[in-house]
Amino acid sequence: MLFAPDTEVALRTVVNLINTAANGREALASVADLDNFLRAEGFSGSRTRDDAELASVHEFRSQLAVLWTADEDTAVETVNRLLRDANALPQLMKHDEWDWHLHATTREAPLVDRMSTEAAMALVDVIRTKEMDRMLVCDAEDCNAVVLDLSRNRSKRYCDTGNCANRAHVAAYRARQASGG
């Protein structure tokens, strides 16, 4: 295990959120889309379910996308700002199927504050452990989705948004066949 389970869940949510805008598509076009995303990611707590909330999540997603490829100092600045802006106060919590884990906002805090705090807390672990090189962009030439490499041998190179890995492997196979190898 590289990170605590709740950290890995939060990091995967970050990846999934950033990738809702990958490759020119908008997967969070409506409040209903956001509802579905949050349900799939297991987010609970208060919601306004309005366009302002959706817009705040879009803005947060843009900040995460920039942070994903930022250098360490910029990432630290962004993470600290996210925690400050949300008035984060880390506390141990137990709820639903989760055993003790960290929350830094209340269930009543605005959605974007809860999302940004969970993301920031997870990214704190990534930065502290000097593992930012696990935050990648898909190697496929026609894809700009982000990738979180949690493999032991640091071998993950393609996103989970489509079939980028399969297309790359097929292309490599065909190139080997064409060259007689």
Score class of each variant (00 low, 15 high):
Thr48Val: 10
Ile18Thr: 06
Thr7His: 11
Phe37Glu: 00
Leu150Pro: 04
Asn166Lys: 14
His95Glu: 14
Gly180Cys: 01
Leu89Gln: 01
Glu59Ala: 15
Glu59Asn: 10
Leu102Asp: 00
Val14Arg: 12
Val126Met: 14
Ala65Glu: 03
Asp160Gln: 03
Ala88Cys: 08
Lys156Glu: 14
Tyr158Asp: 07
Glu141Ile: 03
Gly181Asp: 15
Asn166Gln: 12
Met1His: 05
Ala65Met: 01
Glu118His: 14
Ala52Ile: 05
Arg107Ala: 04
Gly45Gln: 09
Glu53Cys: 00
Pro110Gly: 13
Asp96Leu: 13
Glu8Asn: 15
Ala55Ser: 02
Glu131Cys: 03
Ala109Val: 08
Val66Glu: 08
Val79Tyr: 08
Ala52Asn: 05
Glu108Asn: 06
Ser62Lys: 03
Pro90His: 06
Met132Cys: 12
Ala21Val: 13
Glu108Ala: 13
Met135Asn: 02
Ala120His: 15
Asp51Asn: 07
Arg47Tyr: 05
Ser56His: 02
Thr74Lys: 11
Cys159Thr: 00
Asn23Asp: 13
Glu108His: 11
Val66Arg: 15
Trp98Pro: 07
Phe37Thr: 03
Asp139Thr: 10
Val147Leu: 09
Asp6Asn: 00
Arg49Ser: 07
Asp139Ile: 06
Tyr173Thr: 06
Ala52His: 08
Gly24Ile: 09
Thr78Asn: 07
Arg61Lys: 01
Thr78Ile: 01
His95Thr: 15
Tyr158Thr: 06
Asn87Ile: 00
Cys159His: 12
Arg49Pro: 06
Glu41His: 09
Leu148Ala: 02
Trp100Glu: 11
His101Thr: 00
Thr117Lys: 12
Asn153Glu: 08
Val31Trp: 13
Leu67Pro: 09
Met135Cys: 10
Thr74Asp: 06
Ala22Tyr: 09
Leu54Glu: 12
Thr106Glu: 03
Trp100Gly: 06
Leu17Ser: 00
Met121Asp: 01
Val31Pro: 05
Leu148Gln: 03
Arg84Asn: 15
Arg114Glu: 01
Phe3His: 05
Ser116Arg: 04
Val79Thr: 09
Lys156Trp: 14
Asn144Met: 07
Arg152Met: 11
Arg81Glu: 13
Asn153Trp: 03
Glu141Arg: 10
Ala22Thr: 09
Glu41Arg: 14
His103Ile: 04
Asp51Arg: 15
Arg152Phe: 09
Ala32Ile: 14
Asp149Met: 01
Ala175Phe: 00
Asn19Lys: 01
Arg154Glu: 04
Leu2Trp: 04
Ala171Val: 12
Pro110Val: 02
Ala120Cys: 14
Ala171Gly: 07
Gln91Pro: 03
Ile18Lys: 02
